[in-house]
Simulated scan of single mutants.
Amino acid sequence: MLNVSLVVMADFAIKSNPGMESGIFIIKQALQIGPYHTQIWSYQRWVVGFLVLIDIWVIVWRLRRRYAQYQLQHIIRELHYIAQGHFDHRISFKVRGEQQQVITSVNSLVDSAIQSMDDERKIEQSKDELITNVSHDLRTPLTSIIGYLGLIEDEQYHSQEDLLKYTHTAYEKATQMKSLVEDLFEYTKVRQTSAPLNIMSVNLDQMLEQLAASFELEASKKNITMSAETKPSNLMIQADAEKLGRLFSNLIANGLKYGDGATYIKLTAQQKNNEVQVYVSNDGAKIPEKSQNHLFERFYRVEESRSKATGGTGLGLAIVQGIVDLHHGNVKVESNEKETSFVVTIPIGYQADQAN
């Protein structure tokens, strides 16, 4: 109806203006082609055609706009569904244009949120496990300390020898607790990636020789020989000397505790390009393959080594892993029937902005 009204109005305007009507007639006469003087001009046809094109454009625009609104409403419904707790749901349909970017962003956001929730859940679980393990490891020696001191308090001993025995046992248990607390404190420090390192130039050759000498007396009691070798000699690296010393001390102590039947512990360092590899090796019993992938987990100990004589805190190798991570290196274990080696690889030059 609108188109008809416009045509009628245009026709009335032309007919009511003789000059315009005369001009249009002249144009029509000039636009005749062929032997039959076919006219290609008719303002009514042109006006109608133009209006039809406008109508088609308006219809297409409205349909596309309505479809875009429908897609947006569908996306909003999907978002509401996910927000209700269906975090495993994703917006699966494909659209064109900017709305597809919205869908992709929403799916990525949900994936990121789920990952963050899982990480937070694992952190909470890890904290609970840490508290449980520490509580268990502290309660056992603490119970013994209280028990033996209680016997002394109640004078439940028959001789000076019994008294010394009780106090000695309480002292050993207290020392065990102190070791656990120190290891736990060191573990929490090395797990803080933002903790500052005291980076300095370290002569690795001298450090390994000093470490071998410091453990020589303890090793000799078990008929184990200590040795250290660095290639090239006087190899200098950039590292935190205190933490690096703790790292290798833990590995040596681990070999002394668990290297059943070992006759030697060798510290061997060699430079490879811009890295240094340090091997802490012994010829003791092989570490079971099923345990090798778990050695650096906190509180993990190989089942065969759980005894009063050798059982440690279970944090030594976890501390090693933390110190290696702070230096942007890696550590692994290689164990067979002949030899067990812990291989530490760290960059020679420390870079504070280097990714872990």
Rank of each mutant, 00 (worst) to 15 (best):
D128V: 11
H158Y: 12
D128N: 12
P232Q: 11
Q271L: 05
D325W: 03
V331K: 06
S126D: 11
W61S: 14
I14G: 04
Q176C: 03
R62A: 13
F248E: 00
D260F: 07
F299M: 08
I82Y: 03
E161T: 13
S194P: 09
V344K: 00
E289I: 01
D283P: 00
Q99P: 09
D11Y: 11
E304L: 15
T167Q: 10
E98T: 15
N133Q: 15
S227T: 00
K173E: 11
A30C: 14
K332Y: 15
S201W: 02
K28S: 11
G245S: 08
G245K: 06
D88N: 03
V278S: 00
I59D: 02
D111G: 03
I40E: 11
S112F: 07
E337W: 00
H37A: 15
E218P: 04
G97A: 06
P18Y: 09
Q210K: 14
I287M: 05
Y264E: 02
N356P: 02
I199N: 03
A239Q: 08
V95C: 05
K94R: 12
A355Y: 00
A30G: 07
K178F: 13
A262S: 12
N282P: 06
P18H: 01
T225P: 00
A195N: 10
Q351C: 10
L317C: 08
E21D: 14
Y258A: 03
I145E: 01
Q100F: 04
R65Q: 04
I27C: 04
V276D: 08
N17V: 09
G34M: 08
R66H: 01
N274G: 10
A10Y: 06
Q321W: 04
F299S: 12
S227H: 01
A13S: 14
E339H: 04
G23N: 12
R301H: 09
N3K: 13
I287R: 08
I103C: 01
Q277M: 09
I27L: 15
R139G: 10
I145V: 05
D154K: 12
G322Q: 04
S5N: 09
V320G: 06
W46F: 11
V343R: 14
L6Q: 11
V4G: 09
T263M: 06
R139C: 00
T167Y: 04
M200A: 14
K266W: 03
D183N: 00
T268F: 14
E216C: 01
D119F: 01
G147V: 00
V320N: 05
L51V: 01
H294C: 13
E216F: 06
K243E: 03
I75Q: 02
Q32I: 14
V324Y: 02
L130G: 09
G284F: 04
A253G: 14
I323H: 10
L31R: 13
L267N: 02
L72D: 05
R64G: 10
L138P: 02
S201I: 02
D162Y: 13
I237L: 03
P347Q: 06
L204T: 00
V202T: 01
D353E: 14
H89P: 02
E161V: 11
E155H: 09
I56L: 11
E120W: 10
K122H: 12
A113Q: 11
Q354H: 10
H80P: 05
K308I: 06
K332L: 15
S112E: 10
L79S: 07
D283V: 07
R298C: 14
P232Y: 07
E186L: 15
